[in-house]
């Protein structure tokens, strides 16, 4: 990210200098400051609302329920023998599906540590680590609350129109990802 940030700004300033419009730079900075204020404020309240609803679900045990449902399926995907590891993986994936970011990361890191023990500190990621990372780099979130929020902030007539396409695309891409993963692992091993 550091590179992207620096590169963008350096290239931009050079472009301003070349085109002789360097005086415009300060206007952009000022405009950004005021845009950022209203954007963040609105986003903050929207996120708070969605997080509130999701938190109720978390408190009544929705994550555990989902993780129980996912267990049989995950058992076939991951090769780990340890039920504890699988439990952590299931919790992480359920939290991700419900969009509970601050529950997903701790359980995900715990799952990684378990997988690390099974991998004996090798510098090469184990097969299960690759599969687990795939679940986390593919978005499995069922309701994309942030995107819904941004859409309604922009005055969409129907912010939810994307939900079904998103679920379809996410599921298909995850399946393709798992197949790709199997293929890449076979090439490596």
């Amino acid at each position: 990210m550091t590179y992207v940030f620096s590169l963008f700004i350096i290239v931009a300033i050079i472009c301003y200098l070349i085109t002789g419009r360097i005086s415009e730079l300060m206007q952009v900075v000022t405009k950004t400051a005021s845009d950022c204020g209203s954007f963040v404020l609105q986003l903050m309240f929207l996120t708070a609302f969605f997080s509130g609803i999701i938190k109720i679900g978390e408190d009544i045990g929705l994550t555990q329920l989902l993780s129980k449902c996912l267990h049989p399926l995950l058992k076939r995907i991951f090769h780990t023998k340890s039920p504890e590891t699988l439990q952590k993986i299931a919790t992480n994936i359920s939290a991700n599906m419900l969009g509970i970011g601050n529950a997903a990361t701790p359980s995900g890191l715990a799952a990684m540590q378990k997988l690390e023990e099974e991998n004996n500190g090798s510098p090469v990621p184990s097969d299960d680590m690759c599969r687990f990372l795939l679940f986390n780099t593919c978005s499995v979130q069922l309701i994309p609350t942030t995107i819904l929020g941004l859409r309604s902030m922009a005055g969409s007539q129907n912010p939810s129109a994307i939900i079904v396409p998103v679920i379809v695309v996410s599921l298909v891409s995850l399946t393709v990802g798992l197949l790709l993963c199997r293929w890449l692992l076979r090439l490596r091993n």
Partner: peptide, 12 residues
């Protein structure tokens, strides 16, 4: 936001 706005506005 700053980086993106500058990058866009500068024509880059």
């Amino acid at each position: 936001m700053l980086a993106a706005n500058l990058f866009r506005d500068s024509g880059a």
